[in-house]
Amino acid sequence: MSGSLLKVENLTKHYPLGAGFLKKTIPVVQAVTDVSFSVEAGETLCIVGESGCGKSTLARLLMRLVEPTAGRVLIEGFDIAGLKKNLLRDWRRRMQMVFQDPYSSLNPRLTAGQIITEPAENFGRLSRRQRQALAVELLRKVGMSPELMHRLPSELSGGQRQRLGIARALALRPSLIIADEAVSALDVSVQAQILNLLMDLQQETGIALIFISHDLRVVEHIGQRVAVMYLGRIVELAPCEALFARPVHPYTEALIAAAPVPDPTRIRLEVPLQGEVPSPIQPPKGCAFHPRCPLAVERCRIEVPPLVPMADGRVVACHVRAPTMGIPAEPITANSSLSPMAQQ
């Protein structure tokens, strides 16, 4: 078994639409389908894709905020996907989440100090002095003045609220933090502060980070590896520098081509992307991207492409590109690690 901090195997979440004995088949929303990857201690894995591709659902599956339809989520080798709530409680300390909207994720009736110390008190009673010391320590760690501990979330700025959310996530000293669009609602200058804060905290504490974003500029700045999702599946997973220097999957190419480039002298890829994202209720047969793909062949319309490892350490799900890029023979399976660090 892999020594990865987090290992996800064939994780799937389908939401049934309605019920009734007269219906022979019940339609389902295929939010996440057959997703596998691993994360090492101290690593940053970014997950990108268009809205509705399953990024946030995947985050909630990892946290067990929603129940998976199938698959496994292993933390330090132990599968938490099927644990009952009373057994899951202790494992929650190892993973914490920073949500997209800092205001709605904070209790408006609690002060900043109470918000920070609440997770720790859920696992053991703290004296008043211990609570205050913990709040002061974490506020300083995220670059906030301890004087703010008595303020309500409504009295803080957006950047301060997001820092408060990060401080709360650190209260239990987790091994992994999942940040779901954690900077998308913030000004550019505040985004840079939060990103640098996360990177500094990672170097200081050694935590792993799963960073979910639709902003490729942010991903290029913070990521070590990047997983590209389309309609609930991972279509490419690669080291960050390699992905942006040479995207292989046509969808990855289109995403990078669509991102604004501040440098007018930099040559951009011209990859027109036609059509709209298909419905997750009735996804296309074969490769889900084939109706919009300029490279699609007949096989793409029939057969779902497996994630195949390539010579440069990335994995790609593409019938057209993968055979031409010097790949090993075997596709990725549930028991294979997608982490280059784990393969060393």
Rank of each mutant, 00 (worst) to 15 (best):
A296I: 03
V271I: 13
F211L: 10
A288R: 14
V277T: 14
P278W: 07
P260E: 08
K285F: 00
G232Q: 12
A192H: 03
G223W: 11
C300F: 04
A322H: 09
C293V: 05
C287K: 05
P294S: 14
A259D: 05
G275Q: 12
A238L: 07
P278V: 04
A322W: 11
P250M: 05
P262M: 12
H319R: 13
M199P: 00
R321P: 00
G286L: 01
T265P: 00
E253S: 10
V248Y: 01
P264K: 10
P272C: 07
H221I: 01
G286T: 00
H290S: 14
E241A: 15
R314V: 06
S279C: 13
V248H: 07
I210C: 06
D215C: 08
G232N: 11
D263G: 05
H319E: 04
T252Q: 11
F244I: 10
I302Q: 15
F289A: 05
H249M: 05
M229W: 09
P250I: 03
I212M: 06
E241N: 07
P264L: 08
R321M: 13
V235N: 10
T324W: 00
A257T: 06
E253L: 09
L295A: 13
Q202R: 15
E241M: 08
P280K: 08
T205R: 13
A242N: 10
P309L: 08
G232D: 10
H221L: 09
G232F: 14
S279R: 14
E220R: 15
P278N: 04
F244Y: 13
V271G: 02
V228R: 14
R233T: 14
V219D: 03
Y230R: 02
E303F: 02
R217E: 11
L237W: 00
N196I: 02
E204P: 00
D187L: 03
